[in-house]
């Protein structure tokens, strides 16, 4: 379990990263390395060059003004968990961060790395999908913005180009009354989720979204979750219906077995209870 031989570069700026990517089709970006590290050791990835982006100052900043709230791609889960980065979602980001794997992983793992890797069982993907997060992506011609929903094409599959780099995550600001719920079902502390349910509701803006994730399938986003409720009212948590939710997940294209589908519906139901509980 040792990696193949590779070169290593630690550029100081985003432009250099793009140049290196352009020159080396077999290059890999190294952020926290919490997924890439084991994959290198298992030789599941065999890059010729690793580009370490953790020393690029602007990637660990938070960019905040009246219009945007953007977390740098190399901000670690631990920085969010510890409140070193302000949480625009009433504590939701902190809570999600605190449940990612183990503290050791959170100390190095980064939010941008997690989203670029797009493991469907990863916490950030569901959490930011439900919030309506967007990515800021650098490319040779400048910057582009992409909604996370749509950016992820499948399990560990995104529309990130070969010479592109996720630089920041834009988190929409909810109103003060926005409420969130996040429920993860996993076999043991620190493991990847078997099922995730995420809920966000903002009665000021009428924003109500739910996400279900699990296994190796792309998470499903319900931006209109009415069909999951017996009386069609998402604010009436008691009318959330497991069977309807399972049907809706199937309709949305999820094809796991009965058990996996069931626990995804349970995770949604518990996230909902959490969001609605006083």
């Amino acid at each position: 379990m040792k990696p193949v031989a590779f070169d290593y570069a630690r550029p100081r700026g985003i432009a250099q990263v793009l140049e290196l990517l352009d020159a080396n089709p077999a290059a890999k970006i190294l952020a926290g390395g919490q997924t890439l590290g084991p994959m290198l050791n298992l030789r599941l990835v065999q890059p010729e060059l690793l580009i370490d982006i953790t020393r690029i100052a602007e990637l660990v900043e938070v960019n905040e003004n009246d219009d945007i709230y953007a977390i740098g791609a190399c901000v670690t889960h631990a920085a969010i968990e510890d409140g070193r980065v302000r949480d625009p979602a009433n504590g939701f980001l902190r809570r999600v961060a605190s449940g990612i794997a183990y503290r050791a992983v959170r100390t190095r793992g980064t939010i941008g790395g997690s989203l670029s890797h797009a493991d469907p069982a990863a916490d950030w993907l569901s959490a930011l999908l439900v919030l309506g997060g967007e990515l800021e992506i650098a490319h040779a011609g400048g910057m582009r913005r992409a909604a996370l929903h749509g950016f992820v094409k499948g399990a560990m599959e995104t529309d990130l180009g070969a010479v592109e780099l996720v630089t920041a995550i834009h988190v929409p600001r909810g109103s003060r009354v926005a409420r969130h719920g996040f429920h993860k079902i996993c076999r043991k502390t620190g493991e990847f989720a078997e099922a995730i349910g995420a809920v966000t509701t903002d009665t000021d803006t009428g924003f109500f979204r739910m996400v279900a994730a699990g296994g190796s399938e792309q998470p499903v986003l319900f931006d209109d979750p009415k069909p999951l409720f017996k009386n069609g009212d998402p604010l009436d948590a008691g009318s959330f219906d497991m069977d309807m939710a399972m049907d809706a997940l199937r309709e949305a294209g999820m094809e796991p077995d009965e058990y996996e589908l069931r626990i995804r519906a349970v995770a949604m139901s518990r996230a909902l209870q959490e969001a609605m509980s006083p």
Binding site: P38, L42, R187, K188, T189, G190, E191, F192
Partner: peptide
Amino acid sequence: ASTLSDYLLPGPAE
């Protein structure tokens, strides 16, 4: 299973 994320061992929390 070829890693400890597929072969589950109980940890302190379990």
